[in-house]
Design a protein around this nucleic acid. Structure first.
Length: 585
RNA sequence: CGGUGAUUAGCGCAGUCCGGUUAGCGCACUUCGUUAGGGACGAAGGGGUCGAAGGUUCAAAUCCUUUAUCACCGACCA
């Protein structure tokens, strides 16, 4: 590709609105342009990168026997009513009507369509297991799109769905996909971790996320320093070791005027936050008439409620909804800052760590007062103990081996065991050996293709721009010709080298613009081409051409007669590494 | 969904408070010249329904009303 005939679209200035480095660099390097909130055009260079990522994914999916197909983005609403998700999915699901007023949705994911395909096309258990995938655009009307393509509304996903006669077969494919994903992200040069994960709106009973470690990540993951345990903080558990102290004197009321937070109350009572009980009031599950009870969740004052865990407790709203101040006032007669379990008229859930507190302080359900020296059982008889809190740095790993540490991650992939959730709801059945029709077991497996690109840049860049892993680079080689218009020999050698490398199938970006050298160097390094060749008057006088490696910074001058073979060898080695680096995984 | 802020040339911004010549600056772009190994310099140009709609006024980018869009922060509050 000649730069003069290409659309490079690089920016000299840093875009002001971009908060994270990958977003800035994707704009500057001319990979993407925003067209509306959360909607992006992929410019030619960006598209080349996307295609590279897709290629790796295809190879590894195909290697595990998955088969590619393509499903529609626009899907009939009735299909979503069948699965029950039309109402459950919420406003993130974009709904629309055609000219005949028929209802449709823009697919945020494709379980419904694939299940419809499975039930119509899979006629015999002998066809199982079957794993089908596509690489295709999804639309989710995110509350707050941000960080460029990291959280866009429209994005490209590789989604695979597997069908099975029994759970053992699903297990096998789940393992295969776990392995395939590990290979894919290794080949893409990412530093990642598979972690145990919540199943969220997709449903199912077992799931792992693949998290790329990066400070810009929106997820928090917990991992053990003494074992392989790693989980999204939404799921991460720990072992509580504290002993509950013996009850002391009877509880009494203490004034805490104007105290609306745990820290305020602790300060007013001259104690620390971990001696104060934090009481939150949330909504329970809605009944047929939309009514719900109010439920109190009690935590140690210095710990945080885990909404995912709380939402899973039977009878809770899920996703978890908090009670409004008005609801709380009407129910308890107190403002939110003065709540506590003593005398609370509703259901009380107590976190496992909070249950080990003794002689603690809590709100008095009366504005301006807290109770001190409160104790479970003695003062509060009726409560349920469950895991409600986020784990913290230094907590024990739940397998008893090592301590937990927290890091930020970007979720680039997730695999789920769906079980029979969709096949039962939508009647996707096969005959077993007894001639009895049974719903198929299903799994689903997604990779955020567009997000992978952003995640890679988060991990691979420097002050000059992107440093692509070889498997993702939009071009393998960049040739820069210095002053080709004034030096015929430079022009001739650059043209010759370009022709030879192109002829051998190498992806070359040949900067043939009659630009000043600095402009061309800056562009080549910004877009992150791994191998940069400079053809210039100076070294050509010695019969040499210059080579620079973008990643290592290594520079080398080579004879004109040797440069082509040298580059071919470099590129061949890079391709070989990109293909095989996952083999020992 | 809540809070804050923004919207004026392709991009980044000033002008708006306090209405009044032909709406301005930097970058980018075009042409010419000088330059030439790490984002050059000079000169001359082109480019605007001032987000949209309505209103007030002799006069609106500027004041009023409505509305759209975008960004950032928050959605853990006991």
């Amino acid at each position: 590709m000649r730069t003069s005939r290409y659309l490079l679209s690089t920016l000299k200035e840093n875009p002001v609105e971009a908060a994270v480095v990958s977003h800035r660099l994707m704009l500057r390097a001319g990979l993407i342009r925003q067209i509306a909130s959360g909607l992006y055009t992929w410019l030619p260079t960006g598209l080349r990168v996307l295609h590279k990522v897709e290629q790796v994914i295809r190879e590894e999916m195909n290697r595990k026997g998955a088969i590619e197909l393509s499903m529609p983005v626009v899907q009939p609403a009735d299909l979503w009513r069948e699965s029950g998700r039309y109402d459950k999915y919420g406003p993130e699901l974009c709904r629309l009507k055609d000219r005949k007023q028929n209802e449709f949705v823009l697919g945020p994911t494709h379980e419904e369509v694939i299940t419809a395909i499975g039930r119509s096309e899979i006629k015999s258990a002998r066809q199982l297991p079957l794993n089908l995938y596509q690489i295709q655009t999804k639309f989710r009307d995110e509350i707050r799109p941000r960080f460029g393509v990291m959280r866009g509304r429209e994005f490209i996903m590789k989604d695979a769905y597997s069908f099975h006669l029994d759970h053992d077969s699903l297990d096998k494919t789940y393992e295969d996909m776990y392995d395939a994903y590990s290979r894919i992200f290794t080949r893409l040069g990412l530093d990642f971790r598979p972690v145990e994960a919540d199943t969220g709106a997709i449903g199912g009973n077992h799931s792992h996320e693949f998290q790329v470690l990066a400070d810009a990540g929106e997820d928090t993951i917990a991992y053990s320093d003494g074992s392989d345990y790693a989980a999204n903080i939404e799921m991460a558990e720990t072992i509580e070791t504290a002993e509950r102290p013996a009850p002391g004197p009877d509880y009494s009321k203490a004034p805490t005027p104007g105290c609306h937070s745990v820290d305020d109350a602790a300060a007013a009572l001259s104690i620390t936050a971990d001696q104060v009980l934090k009481s939150l009031i949330v909504r329970g599950e809605r009944d047929a008439e939309g009514k719900y009870e109010l439920i109190m969740c009690c935590l140690k004052g210095n710990q945080e409620l885990n909404e995912v865990k709380a939402g899973k407790v039977p009878g809770m709203s899920n996703p978890l909804e908090f009670a409004t101040d008005e609801e709380i006032a009407a129910f308890t007669g107190s403002h939110p800052g003065s709540l506590g379990p003593v005398g609370f008229k509703g259901r009380i859930l107590v976190d496992k760590a909070a249950e080990r507190m003794g002689n603690f302080a809590c709100g008095a359900n009366e504005d301006g007062y807290h109770l001190i020296n409160v104790n479970w059982d003695r003062d509060i008889k009726d409560y349920e103990v469950c895991d409600l809190r986020n784990v913290e740095e230094g907590d024990l790993s739940p397998d008893g081996k090592g301590k937990l540490h927290l890091r930020k991650g970007i979720e680039v992939g997730q695999i789920f065991m769906l079980g029979k959730k969709y096949s039962e709801a939508m009647n996707a059945v096969v005959m077993d050996e007894n001639g009895k029709s049974i719903p198929m077991e299903m799994g689903c497996y997604g990779i955020g293709v567009t997000r992978v690109v952003a995640a890679a840049i988060e991990q691979h860049h420097d002050e000059r721009g992107i440093i692509w892993p070889d498997s993702m680079a939009p071009f393998e080689v960049s040739i820069i010709a210095i002053k080709p218009g004034r030096c015929p020999q430079v022009h001739a050698e650059a043209e010759k080298l370009y022709a030879e490398l192109e002829a051998s199938g190498i992806e070359v970006l040949y900067d043939d613009r009659d630009e000043r050298p600095g402009v061309m160097f800056a562009d080549a390094e910004l877009i992150g081409v791994p191998h940069i060749i400079t053809v210039g008057e100076k070294s050509l006088a010695n019969g040499e051409i210059e080579y620079k490696n973008r990643r290592s910074g290594e520079k080398q001058n080579l004879k004109v007669s040797e440069i082509a073979d040298f580059i071919k060898a470099k590129v061949a080695a890079a391709r070989e590494h990109a293909r095989t680096c996952a083999d020992k995984h």
